[in-house]
Amino acid sequence: MQAVNTPIQENEKLNANTNEAERKPSGAEQMNDSAAKVGKTVGKPFAKHPKMTMRNVDVFYGDKQAIHDVSLDIGKNEVVAMIGPSGCGKSTFLRCLNRMNDTIEICKVSGEIKLEELDVYHPKQDVVPLRARVGIVFQKPNPFPKSIYDNVAYGPRIHGLVERKTDLDEIVENSLRRASLWEEVKDRLHAPGTGLSGGQQQRLCIARTIAVSPEVILMDEPCSALDPIATAKIEELITELSEKFTIAIVTHSMQQAARVSHRTAYFHMGKLVEVNDTKRVFTNPEHELTEAYITGRFG
């Protein structure tokens, strides 16, 4: 943990003077009382060694604005948790990071999202190589109705990552090991992935995602459909994975956020209210809305 914490502490200076001049006035701020209280993001949204940087991101569904002017960094090998009441836009925001929102025709994204130097929403940017670098794990485990092996091998195959069958076998084995699923499924690699239990399915989905060796893994409430034991396994896995990957996780469980993440971002009605070290958010939140949420006054 030490290794991760150091850069974050250094970030404090950086975050102290959040550049107010850049901020756009957003029209929907008077939506209701609590929304009016949001104001600008407090805490430290920026990282010293950012993997992904988001600046002034707005998301619209048709005429409805779902995300208001969000700026946030996700640092290298950092786990950032996004929490907030349902409908606050955290999932929408997460799905912007690898352009999964492209499938929704009326969804329009403005602002700047960068993966290191790569402009994610550049009109000429092809989503395929982007998604190979930024993988995603969904809320409900969604293995393909194919064998376990084919599920994991699918990504490497379509991206042409391997030339020989043995290489592919190796990738499949490594990915399943990293997802701590190998011991459970090594004897039935050619059984259908849909036959696994919910928790196993979700780990299979994680194995499938890491088989492509992405740089960032997005997780959209990955444990919400799982029982506590399966959840504990996945949480353990996330901590292990953070050694190698950068992870952004949306969760509705504050305990989970507290257990797995380094920094936590609190969203409220499409706005980013507060970003701080996880410990700080849950012990001594800066913003009154955050405090209200973590103490269970709404959500």
Partner: peptide, 21 residues
């Protein structure tokens, strides 16, 4: 189900690959 489409797209499958595979 749309989840299958999401799964394929999330892995970086192109639309044609998603449809055909």
């Amino acid at each position: 189900p749309p989840s299958v489409r999401d799964a394929a797209l999330g892995l970086g499958a192109s639309k044609m690959q998603m449809v055909l595979h």
